[in-house]
Nucleic acid binder design. Structure first.
Lengths: 193, 193, 193, 193
DNA sequence: AATGAATGAGACTTCATTCAT
DNA sequence: CATGAATGAAGTCTCATTCAT
């Protein structure tokens, strides 16, 4: 039944949501299954019906985070717009998500991966993150930059600037949208003549 | 004798060095006092003769890291040079330190702070990090930028770009020095004229 | 089923019982969670499912002790009897409990509180001890003592005499009941007439 | 040289004094050699030049405590006085010492012995305590009590009453001397008609 | 006599995980 | 699906004690 699946998903989603909140606030290691369970309203042991392990749960949470940010970015982009505008929209969508509504989720993307953990885990997380970065690769491809500009460096520079906002952003200053515009502008004058 | 004094300090330094290695590799939470002790060759409990707690040790390690990176940056700057050159030198020194010799130490600076930890800890770490950032504030102050440019954003953009290299740098690509030059260049054309 | 409920509580009771035995024998500080766990047959860590901390467990044990001694005292008192008889019965019940069956528990009451410990702990313990002392306050209230006698001192004197038996009692001498009678008698001739 | 011996003794006394303070405040187990050293101004390891072990130090401290209380009691007794007066003086001296000046030392006498400790330790402590109790045995011997009164019980009752003051005494109530008088009086009317 | 450094055993506690019910 | 109880390994930290200097 659809109802059944919906309910099942709800349980999962509740746990993932609680997980996101905890992981984002305290980091992977400092978050306990008990913390997550408490936020969900179920007992710690019960999580294991839904997820094989803490790592598995983290992967799911991370995936949900990527999903959400990607959606935020995609939604912000107006398909017909010109490349520079599209970039600004994308950056805006990213920061809006990361510093605003989905802060809880987005923090996970910028967060360092759980360290000293199984290699399979790292691979999965990196693959997920790539999904997000590809969004920008494509837009930057279309940008009319000077021939001499190394597009890879250009992109990495932008990603760094944007991610770093997570470190210094304060909610009482410029809005995410404004920040995104200003940051993109700093790189913009590179345009061919 | 200098030798004697050096030796006296050696114990502390040995522990701090081991701490740096471990914290950088595994993060704060996933690093155990055992790990650090093992690397030092003393017993876990013995660390407590020198440091009151794991947090205290981390602060000391973090401080040493900042110290080292600051030294790396400062040493790279040629006092008489013109502002843009000085900035390039500073960036170069930073990345050299962070991606090269002192990688182990530098990772700690870019690393997120241990979370869900005592507030005093955070304050101390933030104060230490400020010491490093001030180095760049001063140089950027002297830069001949267009009037319209917000120097704070400009600086944060640069710091983000540089810090982010820690995520994507691979030792088989461009050298830290080259990367520094390329990144600074991306922001440079902002100059008037 | 009653059996079921009893069994359910058994886990807690088993731990409390083991705790009583250990704390009474070795004192708070010298008792380890391992000791208690070993007596219970579970692992040290498992105790923490039932009690948040060693202090918490001690409070529970202390409470059980008070409960038991109070019950012993109350049971020994024959409601209709005249005041002096009631006092003798109470003292008898007290010493019977303390020096006999519940020795293990009673030692905890006379025991000094765990020192240099959290204030909340001390308050709880004192509150519990008060519960026990009130039993005697009430009886002594009814005693026909000379006007000149300070009832508070009288009570404290009695409590001291009774508690001190814990220091000198040997099971091969007078029985607790006889001791109680003799001690009460020493204070009795204060009566008017 | 006398000077040398005096100095040597001073060291010892300083440590014993610090030990008394600590043991009395925190109990045996909760007192650390570090605590005592800190109060003395020397390093923990240095105590071991003077005392073979913590237990040894405790015995010395306990001995000093007994010594002091005995002195307090003896000094309070006026040799020529009649038995009841002498008892009152002794009790007064005891409580004065225990609740007043030497509180720090006296607490140790009423304190439970370190538990779960070597038997030799216990024997030594009991022997020391006996020294103190004998003071009262002798006085009570001379008391003109009714034939029917069991002098041993009488003494144990008194000792219990006096020791128990340690539990309820507050410095803002009656003075130790007054308390002593009142308590002795409660037992006094036993005198042969 | 004292210090600085270390030892080693053991303390309390946490936590991912399991499993019978 | 969930719970209650337990496990076992590991973690941080403490402390009496030792010993070369």
């Amino acid at each position: 039944m659809t109802t059944r699946r919906a309910e099942a998903n709800n349980r999962l989603d509740t746990i993932i949501d609680a997980g996101a909140r905890c992981f984002a606030k305290a980091g992977y290691d400092a978050t306990t299954m008990r913390d997550i369970a408490a936020l969900t309203g179920i007992l710690p042991g019960s999580i294991y019906y839904h997820f094989k392990s803490k790592e598995d749960l983290f992967v799911a949470v991370h995936d949900a985070a990527i999903e959400r940010i990607c959606r935020g970015v995609t939604r912000a982009i107006k398909p017909g717009a010109e490349p520079w505008a599209r970039l600004e929209q994308a950056a805006s969508g990213y920061l809006d998500s990361m510093l605003g509504n989905d802060a809880m989720y987005a923090a996970l993307i910028v967060m360092e991966f759980p360290r000293r953990r199984s290699q399979p885990l790292r691979s999965k997380l990196i693959a997920q993150r790539d999904r997000f970065e590809r969004l920008f690769v494509d837009i930057i491809e279309d940008l009319p930059l000077k021939e001499t500009v190394d597009r890879r460096y250009w992109r990495l520079a932008l990603m760094g600037m944007l991610a770093w906002t997570h470190v210094w952003y304060r909610s009482n200053g410029d809005s995410p949208k404004v920040i995104a515009q200003k940051l993109v502008e700093l790189l913009r004058d590179q345009t061919g003549a």
